[in-house]
Design a protein around this nucleic acid. Structure first.
Length: 486
RNA sequence: GCCCCCAUCGUCUAGUGGCCUAGGACACCACCCUUUCAAGGUGGCGGCACGGGUUCGAAUCCCGUUGGGGGUGCCA
């Protein structure tokens, strides 16, 4: 990853942008917006511009920015791709913001006001209105310390053409003369944002719906600055189970936290894309699982839904399960490696891995499933008492266990294979008139400590004859002591 | 309060006036398969918020009601 200014080689085509503020973690909603912009930029042969809106938090800039770029890379938005441009930093455009503000003042599109925040509030209260009443519109206030620059909202109606929702009309009389420059002469978000977009020749603004109410103000600024406004698109917000906008405080929203939980990037990307949109062909396919290149080729703003979407972790996990199951073994081993204890024998894990991939919801579930294979020599697994009691209950359980242990003891070194282990158990169980499902229960608890896990005979093959016999004999002893106690 | 947006199964959605007795995915339930658990297969449960219009015909168009959400800073 390089933080140097990466210039896109794309010179034509639409220019999209993704403009996060560097506040630490990367929000899943932001990830979805980035994905939308990315899909469109690539499909349309355009550019994805990354701009870090770091107006006042410049100190941790590098660190946060690296985090954002890494998170973007994780979801496939790669800074090395030809369609990627940036990062640009809002803080580096401060001069342009001030210049634009001056132009607006000189043209009369904006004016200074010397009221303090408190005075504005007091006036509003007295007048029975909310917000600013336009007090200084025609007072001819000159620039000066403590004076804010406000935009002179013209009369009329502002029409926002939105690719997702169609035309949205705003009566300008409902929009107050908003602040462009603070009393300390620093630019407000709205101004900085618009000036940056103009400077970066942005043609398409695709973002979450929460920005829709800002849009008429921004559009008026574009026009006042003599620029042609971009194409707008506002996608619905992501909400929690209470149907509130996902928030950092209440909800688990950090992309990194899902990654750390063992959610695969492809699963996250695929799931995020299905919120507010369905890939065409999903119904015929009976599945919503699609590779990125197909999602990218099919995504259209016009097809995006209009209502907020619940970020459902259950469905995310369901997607993740599919993706883990479909992962080539080598990729699975690489992905899960970080979740395995350092001292586990990787070769041994690789031997059992094919039998656990379809049993995992998250990568991090892997260790618990096969722990019994990685105990120090001579150590016994923790036995689930309920599972043991249940498996040991039938009258035949004890004698059957003894016979299995004896049969397995007679295996030669080359015979210790899952197919033979299974065949032998099937032969023994015949005289007990039980099925394999019942027969394997006690040996399973004896060897793994639990009633569920990977297929037994495959696990035994990996465990090896010595350790298997030791655990089986241990269990035989336990059965014996139990019947004595009775 | 004011402005804006939205409204199909529990959830994500398909549906752009007749193809809808409303389709799929996730979740849930049952059965089958089975070496436990998974996976897989089959089936099931379950929805057009409400009220008025328009129309031969409305989930689809219009109006209203209700409900939800977003925004309303010298935050971004």
């Amino acid at each position: 990853m390089s933080l140097g200014s990466v210039r896109s080689t794309m010179t034509e085509g639409p220019r999209f942008r993704f403009a996060p503020s560097p506040t630490g973690s990367f929000h899943v909603g932001g990830a979805r917006t980035a994905l939308h912009n990315w899909a469109l930029a690539r499909r349309l042969g355009g550019t994805f511009v990354l701009r870090i809106e770091d107006t006042d938090e410049a100190r941790n800039r590098l660190e946060w920015t690296e985090g954002i770029i890494d998170a973007l890379a994780w979801i496939g938005v790669s800074a090395d791709d030809d369609h990627f441009e940036g990062p640009h930093f809002q803080s580096e455009y401060a001069a342009a913001h001030i210049t634009a503000a001056s132009r607006l003042f000189e043209s009369g599109a904006a004016y200074y006001c010397d009221l303090t925040g408190q005075e504005v509030q007091d006036r509003a209260k007295k007048l029975g209105i909310t917000g600013y009443d336009g007090y200084s519109r025609d007072r001819g206030v000159e620039p000066g310390s403590g004076r804010v620059l406000r935009f002179r909202v013209p009369e009329g109606t502002t029409v926002v053409h939105d690719a997702v929702r169609g035309d949205v009309l705003f009566d300008n009389s409902t929009i107050e003369d908003f602040v462009l420059l603070r009393g300390n002469n620093t630019p407000m978000f709205l101004l900085a944002n618009v000036v940056d977009d103009i400077e970066m020749r942005i043609t398409d603004v695709v973002r979450a719906e929460e920005h829709l109410p800002n849009t008429p103000k921004q559009q008026m600024l574009w026009e006042a600055l003599g620029a042609e406004p971009p194409r707008w698109a506002h996608v619905p917000v992501l909400v929690n189970e209470q149907r509130k906008k996902l928030s950092k405080r209440r909800d688990k929203v950090a992309v990194e936290s899902y990654r750390d939980d063992g959610i695969l990037a492809d699963a996250m990307v695929n799931y995020l894309m299905t919120l507010g949109w369905t890939p065409p062909g999903a119904e015929e396919a009976g599945s919503e699982i699609f590779p990125w290149n197909e999602l990218e080729a099919a995504f259209r703003l016009e097809d995006v839904t209009l209502s907020p979407a619940f970020f459902d972790v259950k469905k995310l996990v369901a997607f993740n399960k599919q993706y883990i199951k479909n992962l080539p073994l080598a990729d699975f081993l690489a992905a899960v490696d970080a979740d395995l204890p350092d001292d586990w024998d990787r070769q041994r894990f690789a031997a059992i891995a094919p039998h656990i991939t379809e049993r995992l919801e998250r990568l991090g579930d892997a260790p618990a499933l096969v722990e019994f294979l990685f105990l120090p020599d001579g150590a016994d697994p923790d036995v689930d008492d309920a599972a043991w009691t249940k498996a040991a209950k039938p009258d035949w359980a004890g004698p059957f266990l003894v016979e299995i242990a004896e049969a397995y003891a007679s295996f030669g070194p080359d015979e210790w294979r899952s197919d033979k282990l299974k065949a032998t158990m099937e032969a023994v169980m015949l005289s007990y008139e039980i099925k394999l499902g019942k027969a394997q229960a006690l040996p399973r608890v004896a060897v793994t400590g639990r009633s569920v896990g990977p297929p037994l005979f495959e696990a035994l093959e990996v465990l090896g004859q010595n350790e298997t016999l030791r655990r089986l004999r241990n269990a035989v002893t336990r059965m014996a002591s139990k019947s004595e106690a009775d």
